[in-house]
């Protein structure tokens, strides 16, 4: 069930467009945020009825865009490390391996305490400060193993 707050936010989003369907991306984002970073099927169905879309159409949109997490829940902190060219040139692969070792999980997995999910992603548009990663909504740039270790310690 979408919370009252989420519904309010969705109402505001609807005001931006001449067509209800256009609000589907905002709706999915709002629903995901309101559900701890994971899109629930019942929320998507509710969005479908609010936007007068068929559930399968909402699902098709959600499945297309990689930032919607429909297949699996993510941890409290979703670590997304850039694996594209500029970050790779400056050691992204070593950092990914380092994080796999430190967290004790492979890429694509979540720690048993549900604190961290580790993912690799394509270019995040921060190539001048490579290597970099995103944790939830925030960018962390000019990464080194030491900086990552310090950062992970602060995330509880």
């Amino acid at each position: 069930m979408l919370s009252e707050e989420s519904k309010k936010e969705l109402e505001a989003a609807l005001g931006k467009y001449p067509d209800k369907r256009s609000a589907v991306m905002d709706a999915l984002r709002i629903a995901q945020k309101g559900n701890g970073g994971h899109l629930a099927k019942e929320d998507m169905d509710e969005i479908a009825s609010m936007l007068e879309m068929r559930p399968v159409e909402v699902n098709a949109a959600a499945a297309f865009y990689t930032m919607y997490n429909i297949e699996r829940p993510v941890g409290k902190y979703h670590i997304q490390v850039c694996r594209n060219i500029s970050c790779s040139l400056l050691g992204a692969e070593h950092l990914i391996k380092h994080m796999e070792r430190t967290l004790g999980i492979g890429t694509g997995q979540t720690t048993p305490d549900k604190l961290f999910t580790l993912s690799t992603v394509e270019c995040l548009g921060s190539c001048g400060t490579a290597p970099m990663m995103q944790i939830n909504d925030d960018y962390y740039e000019n990464l080194t193993e030491t900086r990552i270790d310090e950062l992970l310690k602060t995330l509880k």
Binding site: Y17, R21, A23, M25, L28, L51, A61, F64, Y65, M67
Partner: peptide, 18 residues
């Protein structure tokens, strides 16, 4: 919400249309 192809102008329009 995460799709490089949206930088292509007609894909961008499709995306705004939902």
């Amino acid at each position: 919400y995460g799709a490089y192809i949206c930088g292509e102008e007609t894909a961008l329009l499709e995306s705004i249309e939902g």
